[in-house]
């Protein structure tokens, strides 16, 4: 198990009901972590619609998670 810090924005923030949480997980990568959280909290966005960011920058889904990583799941953007 490792400890990770997850931040939520936009639709994910509203569906989760909070902006950030620290949790213990055995997920090896961000994709597995999202699958875990999606099942637990009923998040509607499929992983294919998201990007992952780890420790402040975009990261590939298979990048391994480390203890104390900060993870953000990025919904489809809509600036401008």
């Amino acid at each position: 198990m490792k400890t990770v810090h997850v931040h939520y924005f936009a639709l994910l923030r509203e569906q989760r009901g909070l902006s950030q949480e620290t949790l213990a997980t055995s997920a090896p990568d961000a994709a597995a972590l999202y699958a875990e959280l999606r099942a637990r909290h009923g998040l509607t966005l499929p992983v294919e619609r998201l990007r992952a960011a780890i420790n402040g920058d975009f990261a590939p889904w298979p990048a391994p998670l480390k203890d104390n990583d900060e993870i953000v799941f990025i919904p489809p953007v809509a600036g401008g």
Binding site: F9, E14, L45, I74, P75, P76, V77, A78, G79, G80
Partner: peptide, 26 residues
């Protein structure tokens, strides 16, 4: 490029009281 890449999200509030996060419909 800003519209396509920068992590900014827009929530619209409609006249009928509903809301929607743009591009996030499932």
């Amino acid at each position: 490029e800003i519209k396509a890449r920068v992590p900014v999200w827009k929530k619209e509030h409609y006249a009928d009281g509903t809301t929607e996060w743009i591009n996030c419909a499932t």
